[in-house]
Every structure is written in structure tokens, then in C-alpha cells.
Simulated assay, not measured.
Amino acid sequence: MSQKTATHTFFLQNKAVAGLSLLLMLSWLAVARADPAIWAREWPVTDFTRSSVADWAEIKSGGPPRDGIPALSNPAFHPAAQAKGLSRAEPVVVLDLPGQAARAYPLRYLIWHEIVNDRVGGTPVAVTYCPLCNSAMSFDRRVAGRSLSFGVTGKLRQSDMVMYDRETESWWQQATGTGIVGEMNGRALRQLPSWLDSWQGFRAAYPEGLVMAEPRHNRSYGRNPYQGYDRSNWPFLYDGTPPPHGIAPLARVVRVGDRAWPLARLAKVGEIREAGVTLSWRSGQVSALDAGHVGKGRDVGSVRVRGRDGADLPHDVMFAFAYHAFWPKGRWMLE
């Protein structure tokens, strides 16, 4: 594992500790223990007596403290036709809700912020991205009659981001969209149909679309702080078992519900129609987690998932280890 991967984004976003050695940082991470009594000092509102986490040791510090990775709220947008500075093949999260102009959220921003709290028409949405498991999903922020806003706890569970809502300070699992600690334990966010596409693909499909403007934060947008991560042999701070069937832990899979199709299988044939869904793949989108620049990685292609009626379905293109961790009884669609 490279030093950049091992230190996550902690060194990059917290200059005050940039002088610490890698050894000290890794030692601190190794000895840190999961303890709600300690967490309560930072999270006095969170109800730790309500949790669906079987073993607190599953939750680890990823390095940054609470809000050390700053989530965004109410971002500005530009017409896609007028936007500049984005590479043709770099990935964007596409959200196309009925009656609204389609929106693109570039991963060059999400890789540094991980959550965008937005409102599209009358729908409050959270667009999320966990670089460590490549999970890019969008959710309706309305739960139990309340509109929540989300931030980043700085914690990981099975190498996936643990989010929190600012209203109750409950903790949420990003990969599943479910509350795992606190008042909202057991609640589920409604996943919205969104997908990763290349910037050029979005502009071609939605010439009247909008793209999120560059945030006003001191970040090296466009640079990939996880250079080479998706070529790693093992995920950061993941202590679960490897995926079955000889699938590499950081191989991409297309998850629809509790089923997962290996991306390699889909890319080989271009289209798969199974289990009532149609998965399609086309080249032209690069990995944001490969090269030093998010627009210069290797081509991993774009995926679209539709139902029998042709409508887009909620799905995720995530790493195999994360699917295995959160859907251990899920169905692998291998052939």
C-alpha cells in the first residue's frame, strides 16, 4: 500500500499534522479502539444505546475528525455548455429527476467532500461518494417526515464512509443508505436513480444540463489524492473477508438491489438482460482513483441500468469487497 493511500486524505486536508511521520500516523490508527464512551465526547447528542452494529470494532477512524472532510450544501451550478476546466473523460455523477434540468456532480469535487446536500426542484437530495469503496449514490434526504442534512463523521465501517445527519447526529452507512447508530437507527434513505458518466457523455446527453461549480475550498481539485488506489491488492482499513469466486477485492461490480454483476463481464459483452433489468456499458469514462489526475486514469467505462419499462434504476458501481461486506448473502451474477 502506498503512503498516499495509507494516510487517506488526513495529511492532505489537515496541514497542522503534515509534519507527523507515516509511522506515527499508522501506529495511531492501529491502536485506536472503538469505544462509544470515548466517541461521546465528540458526539454528545448521538444516542449510542441504539445501534444495529454488532461489534463496535467494525467502526474505525479513517484519519480525519468529524467534518474534517467538509460536506457541501447548496452548491452553485453552471450551464454545462458554458463550463470550463473539466476533462472530457473524467467522471461525474448524473442526477436526472423528472421535470428538472439534469445535474452533473464532478468526482473531482466529491473525492474531496464526499457529500453534497442539494435541492433539485422540491426534492432535497444527498449526492454521496466514498472513494475507498467507489460507491457513488444519491438519496432523498427526507426521512420520517423530516428533511435531513448530512456530514462526514471521519469514521469508516468495512472501509465505507459513515455519514451523520446534523439534525439528530445519528450515523448512517453510505453504501446501504441505512441508519446504524442513534435515533435514526434502522431508518433507510430512498436511493435515487443516478449514475456515473464521463463529462463528455453528460454534455452530449444533456446539452441543457447543469454542472456543479467549483467549491470555495482550498483543495487541489482535479488531483487524485488516492493515486493508484483501485489497483491495490487490499482496501484501506478493511478487515473483512475477501469476495468469493476469486474476484479481486477492488474489482468493480454493478450492484442492483442485492445482486451484483462483475463489471468485467458486462464490459465484455456491452449489454446484459437478466433478473428483469438491462445493464449497458460503453467506453469513454476513466477511473478517478487511478492516475494522479482524475481525468487521466484508465478507461473503466460508463454503466446504465434500466428496468423493463426503460426507466433508470437505482444502482451502484462499487468495489467487490464492499458488496461482499454489506450484502454477504447477495447473489453474484457471474454468468
Rank of each mutant, 00 (worst) to 15 (best):
2 S>V: 12
6 A>E: 03
7 T>F: 07
9 T>E: 13
12 L>E: 15
12 L>I: 13
14 N>W: 03
17 V>F: 13
22 L>Y: 10
23 L>E: 15
26 L>S: 10
27 S>C: 06
27 S>M: 06
30 A>V: 11
32 A>M: 10
33 R>F: 07
36 P>C: 01
40 A>D: 09
42 E>D: 14
42 E>A: 15
45 V>K: 11
54 A>P: 04
64 P>I: 09
65 P>A: 03
68 G>A: 06
68 G>C: 13
69 I>W: 03
70 P>N: 07
70 P>V: 12
77 F>R: 07
79 P>Y: 00
82 Q>V: 10
84 K>A: 14
84 K>F: 03
87 S>M: 12
92 V>R: 00
92 V>H: 00
100 Q>N: 14
102 A>E: 08
107 L>A: 05
108 R>Y: 04
109 Y>W: 12
112 W>E: 11
112 W>F: 13
114 E>P: 08
118 D>F: 13
121 G>W: 11
122 G>P: 01
124 P>S: 12
128 T>E: 03
128 T>R: 03
130 C>L: 03
131 P>R: 01
134 N>S: 13
138 S>Y: 06
139 F>K: 02
144 A>Y: 09
146 R>F: 06
154 G>R: 05
158 Q>L: 03
160 D>G: 06
164 Y>F: 15
166 R>E: 11
169 E>L: 11
175 A>G: 04
176 T>N: 11
179 G>I: 08
180 I>P: 00
186 G>I: 11
189 L>R: 09
191 Q>M: 14
193 P>K: 08
194 S>M: 05
195 W>C: 02
197 D>N: 12
197 D>W: 10
199 W>N: 02
204 A>T: 11
206 Y>A: 00
211 V>W: 05
213 A>M: 12
221 Y>P: 02
225 P>S: 14
229 Y>C: 10
230 D>F: 08
231 R>S: 10
233 N>P: 00
233 N>E: 14
234 W>E: 11
239 D>Y: 15
240 G>L: 10
249 P>R: 04
250 L>N: 12
251 A>N: 13
253 V>S: 08
254 V>W: 00
257 G>N: 12
260 A>I: 05
262 P>R: 13
266 L>Q: 03
267 A>P: 03
269 V>H: 06
272 I>F: 09
273 R>V: 07
274 E>Y: 04
276 G>V: 11
281 W>T: 02
289 L>H: 01
290 D>E: 07
296 K>F: 14
300 V>T: 15
301 G>C: 06
302 S>C: 10
302 S>P: 09
311 A>P: 06
317 V>D: 02
321 F>R: 02
321 F>K: 08
325 A>F: 07
328 P>E: 09
330 G>L: 09
332 W>D: 10
333 M>T: 00
333 M>E: 14
